[in-house]
């Protein structure tokens, strides 16, 4: 029956077939807290973007317990988290809710199940690629890439709509377009990249993703 146990590196789908809760507990950041949720809904009421969540956190927790793997991992909901920590400090049972939301989003992302066009998912990738490249945020590259995320025409429109913000930042020396051409960042870029690559590798191995 259970052939998956004999496979050396079973995919998470096989290893946790029919038990999404166990999969979340094992593979999602702070996922072992999910069962502690008592369904009070204080998190939803505290969330600044609460109304934008198709499934608020306590509902996601219940869906995880009900085994609704696809619905949870493909949801846009977790991507509405602004990282404000309101749910974390207010949860009566002290669940680190925000981190579980981040964990679910990250896990969905690594499995390739996260909604492809979600703007926060796409911005987050631009951000991470930006810092992983040089070790520090290059704000001019990040903002230009963000404007042109949806192609040239849309980028020109965004840049036009944002021109006053951009000009204000340039005039006050809080943005510098030369930064787009000059990478900047830390001295030990290669060393940091090697460290990050090893970290991805170890983490993927521990979570059965590779």
């Amino acid at each position: 029956m259970n052939q998956t146990t004999s496979v050396s590196d079973p995919s998470p789908v096989e290893k946790y077939r029919n038990n999404f809760l166990k999969e979340v507990e094992a593979n999602v950041e702070e996922g072992d807290w999910v069962k502690m949720c008592m369904q009070c809904g204080v998190c939803s009421g505290s969330c600044p973007l609460g109304s934008a969540w198709a499934h608020p956190p306590q509902e996601l927790f219940m869906m995880i317990r009900a085994g609704q793997r696809e619905e949870v991992l493909r949801s846009e909901s977790m991507w509405m988290c602004t990282s404000c920590y309101s749910c974390v400090v207010r949860c009566p049972r002290e669940l680190p809710i925000m981190h579980i939301m981040h964990g679910l989003a990250n896990y969905a992302n690594r499995l390739g199940l996260a909604p492809k066009m979600n703007p926060t998912k796409r911005f987050a990738k631009l951000f991470w690629d930006n810092i992983a490249a040089t070790g520090r945020v290059n704000e001019s590259r990040l903002s230009i890439k963000l404007y042109f995320m949806n192609g040239l025409v849309s980028g020109i429109k965004t840049a036009f709509a944002m021109r006053k913000v951009g000009l204000g930042m340039l005039k006050t020396h809080r943005l510098n377009l030369i930064g787009f051409f000059r990478a900047g960042g830390i001295k030990e870029k290669n060393q940091l990249q090697q460290m990050l690559n090893k970290a991805y590798e170890i983490e993927d191995k521990r979570k059965g993703l590779s």
């Binding site: 990282s83 926060t120 990738k125 951000f127 810092i131 460290m195 991805y200």
Partner: peptide
């Protein structure tokens, strides 16, 4: 030679260990 902390939004692609490695450095 300090590096970026990964900020909060780093969760999506940075996961756990890579983010902690950045801060630990």
């Amino acid at each position: 030679d300090w590096n970026c902390c990964g900020a909060s939004i780093g969760y999506a692609d940075g996961g756990e260990l890579p983010r902690h490695v950045m801060n630990a450095r």
